[in-house]
Each structure stands twice: as structure tokens, then as C-alpha cells.
Simulated scan of single mutants.
Amino acid sequence: MISRLSCISVALLALSGCAIHQNIKPVEHVDSKVVCIIDNPAVRATFIDAYQHALSNKGYEVKKLAAGASLVECPVTSTYTATWRWDLAMYMAYADIVVYKNAKPAGKATYDATRGGGNMGKFIAAEKKITELVDQLFPNLAGS
């Protein structure tokens, strides 16, 4: 009985190390229909393309700002970062999107599969995950 309980405990402990975490703090209200995104050249270009597309689908006009631009250049500004890893295939292991209103943090979406280990859920299409993050980060359509 004790050895069986030990095996179950070890299995649960091993599986807990294969966790994927996602945390969203939605932007409560956006007065502007324009969202400026500060470019991050360290991240694959497909990320900002998917991010712009997801915002456009929600009715926002997207203005891309150069890397290093100030948060005060637009009333609503966003930064992002993401990393990819290899484990049988390339996958987006981490993504972080922060939204600022008048240069103050207003919302944040984080996806973290860096401890995904054997969890096959980490092999998601990055564009689909980015769209999901944006839909939760901006729960309302532009102007709502």
C-alpha cells in the first residue's frame, strides 16, 4: 500500500513539473480605437504579424512603432516579448504582452510553457495562442 502511494505521489510530482501557465489581466476599457505596438526585433516577425491581425479583428487600428519608442507616443501602447524552443519541433515557449494606457500598465497577458516538459499541449500554433491571448486581454471590441 505504501509503495503504491509512493508511486502515485512521484507520478503526480513529475506531472506537476510539466505545467503550462497562462495569466491574463484584461484591459478594462480602451477609449482609443488605435493601439500602438512597439516593435521588438528580438522576437520573430510572425509574432507581431499575428498580434496586429488579432487586434484588427477586434476592430482596432494598429500603429507599429520603432523599437525603443516611448510609451507616451500613443494613448494606448503595447510591448511584447516571446521565445521559441525546440523539442521534437519548434514551439512558442513563452509570450508576454503588456498594454499601457497613458504610459501606465493597464493589462497583461502571459503564456508560459517553459516548464511544459512532456506536456504535448505546448505544441500549439503560435498564431492561435496569440489570438487567444489578445481576445482575453481585450475582451471588448474597439470602441465598446
Rank of each mutant, 00 (worst) to 15 (best):
I2S: 04
S3T: 06
S3L: 05
S3H: 03
L5T: 11
L5R: 13
C7D: 14
S9I: 13
L13R: 05
A14W: 05
A14T: 04
S16K: 05
G17T: 04
G17M: 02
G17E: 01
C18P: 01
I20S: 06
H21S: 12
H21I: 09
Q22W: 02
I24Q: 00
I24D: 00
I24L: 00
P26Q: 03
D31A: 12
S32L: 00
S32Y: 00
V34C: 08
C36D: 09
C36T: 12
D39S: 15
A42E: 14
R44F: 08
A45S: 14
F47C: 00
F47H: 04
D49M: 11
A50H: 09
Y51M: 03
Q52W: 07
H53E: 15
H53L: 12
K58S: 08
G59V: 11
G59Y: 10
E61I: 14
V62H: 11
V62T: 13
K63S: 12
K64M: 10
L65I: 06
A67F: 14
A67M: 11
G68Q: 11
A69L: 09
L71P: 11
V72E: 14
T79R: 13
T79G: 07
T79V: 15
Y80S: 01
Y80L: 04
A82D: 08
W84I: 07
W86H: 00
D87M: 01
D87Q: 01
M90V: 12
M90P: 07
M92P: 07
A95L: 07
A95I: 06
D96F: 05
V99L: 08
K101C: 07
P105E: 03
G107R: 01
K108M: 10
K108S: 12
Y111W: 00
D112H: 10
D112Y: 12
A113P: 01
T114I: 00
R115C: 10
R115Y: 13
N119A: 07
I124H: 06
I124D: 04
I130V: 15
I130S: 04
I130T: 08
T131Q: 08
L133I: 01
D135A: 03
D135Y: 03
L137G: 05
F138W: 00
F138D: 01
N140M: 02
L141Y: 10
G143M: 08
G143C: 10
